[in-house]
């Protein structure tokens, strides 16, 4: 059985991080499983955790009255889910639902925050990785906004 530390060390997100730091962060994580259709979190929930997806698929959804729930994006193996735990008002902005059986490591935001404050180098390394995720997500969203395959691009 792999430990959280093993899984952290194997993940693309933390792979390049120095092993002592991987150990520290692993201390803030726990294994979680979501059955197909289960919500990982709901819009408006207090945002305390983020997730490193190990397997499965999660849809980020938003309910549009009159149209139903729309999927904005799906995330899968190796992806990081949720950053609202870092930014005020610390509430989940969207629904996240497992489209299939999903395994993840849930990281406690408060725990991570403490570790990063205690060691600024760790804090820098951690947030630098998160920034890359946010930037890529934003770039993809912009591309999605172009509605490239529409009749009149």
């Amino acid at each position: 059985m792999k430990t959280i530390a093993d899984l952290v060390a194997e993940s693309a997100f933390f792979r390049e991080l120095a092993p002592p730091y991987q150990q520290i962060l692993a201390g803030c994580g726990r294994n979680v499983v979501f059955k197909t259709g289960a919500f990982v979190f709901r819009e408006g929930d207090e945002s305390r955790e983020f997730y490193l997806l190990r397997a499965g698929k999660v849809a980020i959804e938003v309910d549009v009255p009159g149209r139903g729930a729309m999927i904005i994006q799906t995330l899968g193996e190796g992806d990081v889910l949720s950053w609202s735990w870092m930014v005020p008002p610390y509430k989940k902005r969207f629904d996240a639902r497992a489209v299939e059986l999903t395994r993840a490591i849930a990281f406690d935001g408060a725990c991570i925050g403490k570790k990063c404050e205690a060691d600024a180098k760790l804090g820098y390394e951690f947030f630098r990785r998160f920034t890359v995720v946010i930037a890529e997500r934003l770039a993809a969203t912009r591309l999605q906004l172009l509605d490239l395959y529409a009749d009149r691009p």
Binding site: G68, M70, I71, I72, V99, Q144
Partner: peptide, 8 residues
């Protein structure tokens, strides 16, 4: 690029 909930 876009889908309704239920799309797997």
């Amino acid at each position: 690029d876009r889908a309704m909930s239920g799309w797997r």
